[in-house]
């Protein structure tokens, strides 16, 4: 009851000013440097960025799974009203896999190769609720059936190497959904899969989250994938959110030059025959970020003002830029 009341009062996830830094010998790597996110109950948020933009580190920070030398240095993560950054390790363990779950990028590496699927599912159930083995097995079997694994009863006794990549990712998704969590963080879960399997899995995850009211953060570098999936999108660059808004709005009318570049580099039916535009330069190293807007060195619109860090604007469609593009403006 109390949780239901809290959920109504607060969105599933509220992240404010999150900073996750890695203290390496070469210097402090500010992989996540002031990220704000809000995800409502049952909402799907796409978190988009290039490799090294800090999107995966953001995901792991939400679960408190940052390994040394990294740690969360600042900010607040509230899951259904409960603060996670100051929670005791024991409490975090209780929440992980239970209220907040994660799906990893490479399904070939996610499941333990020497344990049966049954073991890996039953232990997830027994870690959070008191449940007998037979009952846990039955629930595991149903969960496999829901993610579209044929003959789940027999597959429970199989080992991960007897599954294809797509099937393994389905198992991982089934594990993430076991406790019907408030939030699932999916870290590029289809990148390693065939395109046809990708589409199936996307559709299934979407349906399952809608059914259970689970909110979803879908981390990806591929805007095209989430444009049909997400409700909202947040674009990350060099550890910060540079633009966020409703997915249709952001894709149709990007305001940040970086988002604009990202969309321009995706092949599309409407621009058949044209050359794909590319963003000049490379993602900057976290050890040598420019002091102001991190995108300025690659940006055609940059001027002296961009030597300072722009703030995220207000409104439903937010952008972190001194010279945002107007609606319908050409590149």
């Amino acid at each position: 009851m109390t949780r239901a009341a809290e959920t109504r009062a607060e969105p599933t996830l509220v992240v404010k000013g999150l900073k996750t830094h890695f203290f390496t010998e070469a210097g402090v790597v500010k992989s996540v440097d002031g990220v704000d996110l809000t995800v409502d109950r049952g909402e799907i948020l796409g978190l988009v960025g290039e490799s090294g933009s800090g999107k995966s580190v953001t995901g792991f920070s939400l679960l408190g799974l940052i390994d040394p030398p990294g740690r969360i240095v600042e900010g607040s993560i509230r899951l259904s009203g409960e603060e996670l950054t100051t929670a005791a390790p024991k409490r975090l363990r209780e929440l992980r896999g239970n209220r907040i779950a994660m799906i990893f990028q490479d399904p070939m590496m996610t499941l333990n190769p020497v344990l049966k699927i049954e073991t890996q599912m039953v232990e997830t159930l027994q870690a959070h609720i008191k449940i007998g083995h037979a009952e846990a097995r039955a629930r595991a079997r149903d969960a496999l059936g829901r993610v579209g694994i044929p003959s789940p009863e027999e597959r429970l006794d199989a080992y991960p190497h007897q599954f294809s990549g797509g099937m393994r990712q389905r198992v991982a998704i089934a594990i993430a959904l076991l406790h019907q969590p408030d939030l699932i963080v999916a870290d590029e879960p289809t990148t390693a899969l065939d395109v046809t399997i990708q589409a199936q899995i996307l559709a299934e995850v979407q349906t399952l989250c809608r059914e259970t009211g689970t909110a979803l953060i879908w981390i990806t570098h591929d805007l095209a994938i989430i444009s049909g999936l997400a409700d909202r999108v947040a674009v990350m660059y060099a550890g910060r959110i540079v633009e966020t808004g409703a997915i249709a709005d952001v894709v149709a009318h990007p305001r940040h030059p970086y988002t604009h570049g990202l969309i321009g580099s995706v092949p599309s039916r409407n621009r058949r025959g044209e050359r794909l535009t590319q963003i000049p330069g490379m993602t900057p190293s976290f050890l040598s970020l420019p002091p102001g807007c991190a995108f300025a060195p690659r940006c055609a619109r940059a001027d002296e003002a961009c030597g300072l860090l722009p703030e995220l604007s207000d409104g439903p469609h937010l952008v972190r830029c001194f010279h945002p593009m107007d609606r319908g403006e050409p590149a």
Partner: peptide, 8 residues
């Protein structure tokens, strides 16, 4: 890491 993410 996945085992930890499961809350074991």
């Amino acid at each position: 890491k996945f085992a930890r993410a499961k809350g074991l």
